[in-house]
């Protein structure tokens, strides 16, 4: 053994010693470090614990219902039944823990228009108003009960709910047609819009009344209803609220 070391060049021995020293120091240092610092699982458990312990700000609808049973009963009957209380009233964990801390909501128009102002990106059918023309001087709560928001009287105009369609129609050749030209609407539709639907035309002859070449109505785009796309119903190609014909007038179809 000593013979082997003697035969090694001294350079190797010296470098070897330095390396051994280095590796020993590093290993020793690592060994000295408490195991908990090197244990990923322990770190993760600690993080989960820390994360779980974070403070809650929103109490959750169940907590509200515990005390506010009556309001909840009203709410479950109305259109806002699926809204959480804190959607409008804000984070209320403090209030839930100590009722003396009041949960307040400003009864300003902006609190409602935030969701109900007309915005074209909003899904069709979501009730939207134009706040500039919709009773601009009144607070919403004067006519609508936020916990059961029914219109105070049956909406006068369809666009109260169908804002998107109304806006589209405004820039279309059909701008002057009232909705009732094409839709027959049961009175009940205004009260229970989902249960009682508005009627739509059922066949080509309805559109033909104005758009057929033999129609007496002037100033409309005319087609030969017998040959023009006879396989389809008109609204399978043309969206009636914006029939895609910007050259409104006497031009014939290409």
């Amino acid at each position: 053994m000593t013979g082997f070391f003697k035969r090694l060049p001294e350079a190797v021995v010296r470098v070897g010693i330095v390396f051994l020293l280095f590796i020993t120091t590093v290993s020793f240092a690592r060994w000295m470090i408490p195991a908990s610092l090197k244990n990923g699982r322990e770190h993760r458990t600690a993080t989960v614990k820390r994360e779980t312990a974070k403070a809650i700000h929103y109490a959750g609808a169940d907590a509200c219902t515990e005390c506010h049973k009556e309001i909840n009963a009203v709410k479950t009957e109305g259109y806002h039944r699926n809204l959480s209380c804190e959607t409008c009233h804000g984070a209320a964990k403090n209030h839930a823990e100590d009722p003396d801390v009041k949960a307040v909501t400003d009864k300003v128009r902006e609190a409602c228009t935030r969701c109900h102002m007309y915005d074209p990106s909003r899904p069709t059918g979501f009730p939207q108003i134009n706040p500039v023309v919709h009773n601009p001087r009144k607070q919403c709560v004067e006519c609508h009960k936020p916990h059961s928001p029914k219109p105070p009287h049956v909406p006068q105009e369809c666009q109260a709910c169908h804002g998107q369609i109304a806006r589209t129609k405004e820039v279309s050749p059909h701008v002057d047609l009232p909705c009732t030209t094409c839709h027959t609407v049961d009175v009940q539709h205004k009260v229970s819009p989902r249960e009682v639907r508005a009627q739509i035309p059922s066949d080509r002859s309805f559109c033909a009344k104005c758009h057929s070449i033999d129609s007496p109505v002037k100033e409309t785009q005319k087609v030969d209803i017998k040959t023009h796309g006879e396989k389809y119903l008109c609204w399978q190609c043309h969206y009636p609220h914006e029939p895609e014909l910007h050259s409104y007038g006497t031009k014939t179809l290409p």
């Binding site: 959750g60 699926n82 959480s84 959607t87 969701c115 979501f126």
Partner: peptide, 11 residues
């Protein structure tokens, strides 16, 4: 509880 965003989503 629900995540806060889910809790307050009105729709």
């Amino acid at each position: 509880l629900l995540p806060a965003c889910v809790e307050v989503c009105p729709t």
